[in-house]
């Protein structure tokens, strides 16, 4: 997983509608465009665009013919991005920065 792939994931997560769609797919499993559109206050066209961006980020895959196509969550890139976030903060510089904040914070 490259930094560029993470860019796509974080960009995908930066929008509240897309986060809602991901949550819906996670809760309900594979869903059609119509089903997904009923749960968000935006047009079906807009949902279609969001799904396209989520697919580009590798978070969603569409299966079947265009009519009745079902969209499915593919969470692997999320796990990779989470791993990246955990790694940030595990280096000595991050530890030293936290130590400084905590020591100085206690004295105020």
């Amino acid at each position: 997983m490259t930094a560029r792939d993470h860019d796509a994931v974080f960009q995908a997560l930066a929008d509240p509608t897309r986060r809602t769609l991901l949550r819906a797919l996670s809760a309900s499993g594979p869903s059609t465009l119509a089903e997904l559109s009923s749960g968000v206050p935006v047009s079906r066209q807009a949902v279609s665009k969001h799904l396209s961006l989520l697919q580009d980020a590798g978070l969603v895959v569409g299966r079947g013919e265009v009519r009745g196509r079902r969209y499915e969550l593919t969470p692997a890139p999320l796990a990779d991005a989470l791993g990246w976030m955990v790694d940030v903060g595990a280096g000595w510089d991050d530890r030293l920065a936290r130590l400084k904040r905590q020591v100085e914070g206690r004295r105020r």
Partner: peptide, 14 residues
Amino acid sequence: EVHEEIIEAPPEDV
């Protein structure tokens, strides 16, 4: 690897 930080507290606190 060498990492440094100045902390505004005496060594006893750190």
